[in-house]
């Protein structure tokens, strides 16, 4: 009787394994943090947390970004914060070190504001200074992501995420047309790329 029940039990365990919780990860993007340290015209930080399961991970990311473009005659400033949520599929789910090579997707959304102070040098109408601003805008877009995550030592891990961002809102009906959307990038592009280089901690739930 006992040997006849074994395959059924094994099947049940396998079917549950994919959703078994393995670890909790949290990290920050060292590229954006490094740029923020060394540039006066940029304040950009990215953070993420995820819950790692056997083959999948569920991610939540938060970022904030402020950029200033100043060429002496025109000054553009944009700032906002953004969230990203979505799953990853880990192709190295059998790796004994729990390294990850993953593909995933994100739904991203933000709120931001921007302001443009510009000068008009028109030979017919004359010179003039003008200022426009958008007080509160929101945008959303989708991302396809891929990357790796490897152990550095103990609970400290490194990894990167490459992300292809697309389907962002257009704002061409506004008087001030945004040039840069925090979290997305150049607003005139229908798709953009970004790399994040993560320094993270991994808190395992089970070995």
């Amino acid at each position: 009787m006992a040997s006849a029940q074994t395959p059924a039990v094994t099947l049940q365990v396998d079917s549950l394994k994919w959703r078994s919780f393995i670890a909790f990860n949290a990290g920050t993007d060292v590229i954006s943090a490094g740029k923020t340290l060394f540039r006066d015209d940029l304040d950009w930080l990215n953070f993420f947390v995820n819950a790692e399961f056997h083959r999948f991970a569920m991610n939540a990311e938060y970022g904030r970004e402020k950029r200033i473009y100043d060429n002496g005659t025109d000054l553009y400033e944009t700032s906002g914060s953004y969230f990203r949520v979505g799953p990853d599929f880990n192709f190295l789910f059998k790796d004994p070190d729990h390294s990850a090579l993953f593909l995933g997707a994100r739904y991203s959304f933000n709120t931001f504001s921007d302001q443009l102070d510009y000068s008009l040098n028109n030979p017919f109408w004359g010179d003039q200074q003008n200022s426009l601003e958008n007080g509160s805008l929101s945008a959303d877009w989708f991302e396809l992501v891929g990357g790796i995550r490897v152990k550095l030592f103990q609970t400290v891990w490194l990894g990167y995420t490459g992300r292809f961002k697309f389907a962002v809102d257009t704002f061409e009906d506004l008087t001030l047309i945004p040039s840069y959307i925090p979290g997305y990038g150049r607003a005139d592009l229908r798709s953009t790329w970004e790399f994040n280089y993560w320094l993270m901690i991994r808190i395992p739930y089970r070995k």
């Binding site: 025109d74 553009y76 443009l116 061409e172 506004l174 047309i177 040039s179």
Partner: peptide
């Protein structure tokens, strides 16, 4: 007409549309 403005880039400056 409708007026719009945007910054093309830091090097290029602003344009009125």
């Amino acid at each position: 007409y409708q007026l719009g403005a945007r910054l093309i880039s830091e090097d290029c400056g602003a344009e009125v549309i």
